[in-house]
Write a protein that binds this DNA or RNA. Structure first.
Length: 424
RNA sequence: GGAGAAAUGGCAGAGUGGUCGAAUGCGGCGGUCUUGAAAACCGUUGAUCGUUUACGCGGUCCGGGGGUUCGAAUCCCUCUUUCUCCGCCA
């Protein structure tokens, strides 16, 4: 969330910026400023009352020590009234604080200056393309046919065991998953990321820290019995490691990555675009998460982009990189690049990675700061994350783009991991 | 799941109702000494909210929440976590 400070000091700027995200902040920022002012006013009054109370208490203590009971009792006369007032003010302050938080949480992050306005995904801007388009005949099969032909991923069986969106990987299909996970982790390590294997269930605080709660509650599976949530991405546990943490400046950047299974309810998503592996309730993903010095976070974003590009290149997939426009970028992000790979069977682009800089939007919620060497002040860090990569659509594209009459060719970089060079 | 013990600053560890934000040690930072370093010695060293042009000043925080009291790290309730013992278990 944004800080109340920036809204107080640069309200017009905030309103202007949020227009890029098609968000009208006029009314809510006014409420925020009003609530914030009220909160501070209450605190000033409460503080001075408490100060007086402390003073009187000390005097009483001294009087008792000197055995001056009568004077002590006289001093106590006023305390009841003070106590009453303090109680009342604290309640009001808590109320104002809660309301302020409620309001702040509703404001999206400010978009970076390079983000252009736009209604939706059609207005995203392609900033880079790479890879070679596969030479395919018109009748290239979509992956949902290929997985059946080679019996490597079983959607129906997943239906039997669990329900729609929970496929079962078998034989070379299972091995391919394992190969991709190890490949991504090994490449991540080479790029300087430390591996984390976090829990896939998190508590409410974590959900709030990264912004899934309270607004996007329906996205996550909720284990009500224990009030835990199945993670929709490794971003949640890995970023929350740094909740309430103050880092030393020289520790930055903190570069972590983790493989986890991811769980998404995706309530209400149906249609042709979600067929096969295109959208699942459970899938595998390696996520990279970086905590960066605020002045370096856009360099960090570029570094992460290069890493993802490197992965896609090694997998020999044709890709393009999009800079999301204001209408498509997420609530929490300041700047997001999407990676899409071409799928020859479906003849369309599939999103396989989303790399974002959240600036201090997440860290403000997380209270993750670093101690500035020069000023000795604690400052909010910038957080970034990206998929590197999400498996299902990568698998879909690999299968579709590499289909041959003899079977499905495995890209060279993966063969050491799969142990086979063809799926047949 | 049952019984007991505990939770204090970066770490270790005192403190059981009145200048306690908290002794002491270690660590960190600054300094003296030294050609340099070590040792020794001296000083300093938490977070957070508010206020102030500023120097400052005030409030809150001793696992979380609530309570008793003029006053709580200290007493009471509750939750969480850790340790020990028992049970169960991959």
């Amino acid at each position: 969330m944004l800080t109340s400070g920036i809204i107080r000091e640069k309200r017009d700027f905030v309103i202007e910026k949020l227009k890029v995200k098609n968000f009208d902040a006029t009314e809510i920022t006014a409420k925020i400023i009003e609530t914030d002012t009220r909160r501070r006013d209450i605190q000033v009054r409460a503080d001075s009352l408490m100060s007086e109370m402390n003073r009187i208490s000390k005097v009483i203590g001294k009087l008792y020590a000197e055995n001056k009971k009568a004077e002590a009792d006289a001093a106590r006369a006023r305390t009841g009234e003070l106590k009453e007032e303090i109680k009342e003010l604290s309640l009001k302050r808590a109320e104002a604080e809660d309301l302020l938080n409620e309001l702040l949480v509703q404001l999206p992050n400010l978009p970076h200056e390079s983000v252009k306005p736009g209604k939706g995904e059609n207005e995203n801007e392609t900033i880079r393309e790479g890879g070679k388009m596969p030479a395919m005949s018109e009748d290239a099969l979509p992956h949902w046919d290929l997985i059946k032909r080679y019996d490597i991923i079983d959607i129906e069986l997943g239906n039997k065991l669990t329900g729609a969106g929970f496929p079962v990987y078998k034989g070379k299909g299972a091995r391919l998953q394992r190969a991709l996970i190890n490949f991504f982790l090994d490449e991540g390590e080479k790029a300087g990321f430390s591996e984390i294997l976090p829990p896939v269930l998190v508590n409410e605080e974590s959900g709030f820290g990264t912004g899934q709660l309270p607004d996007k509650e329906g996205q996550m599976y909720h284990v009500t019995e224990d009030n835990l949530y199945l993670i929709p991405t490794a971003e949640v546990p890995i970023t929350n490691i740094y909740r309430d943490v103050i880092l030393e400046e020289e520790q930055l950047p903190v570069m972590n990555m983790g493989y986890t299974q991811c769980f998404r309810r995706e309530a209400g998503s149906w249609g042709a675009h979600v067929r096969g592996l295109n959208r699942l309730h459970q899938f595998d993903k390696v996520e990279i998460v970086v905590i960066s010095h605020p002045s370096k976070s856009y360099e960090t974003l570029d570094m992460m982009l290069k890493h993802v590009e490197h992965l896609v290149n090694l997998l020999e997939l044709p890709y393009r990189v999009l800079r999301l426009c204001g209408g498509d970028i997420s609530f929490t992000s300041a700047l997001t690049y999407d990676f899409e790979v071409w799928s020859a069977g479906q003849k369309r682009w599939l999103e396989v990675s989303s790399v974002s800089n959240f600036e201090s939007f997440q860290s403000n919620r997380l209270k993750c700061r670093y101690r500035d060497k020069e000023t000795k002040q604690n400052q909010l860090v910038h957080t970034l994350n990206g998929s590197a990569l999400a498996l299902p659509r990568i698998v879909a594209a690999l299968l579709e783009n590499n289909q041959t009459p003899r079977g499905i060719r495995v890209p060279a970089a993966l063969i050491p991991y799969t142990g086979f060079d063809i799926i047949d």
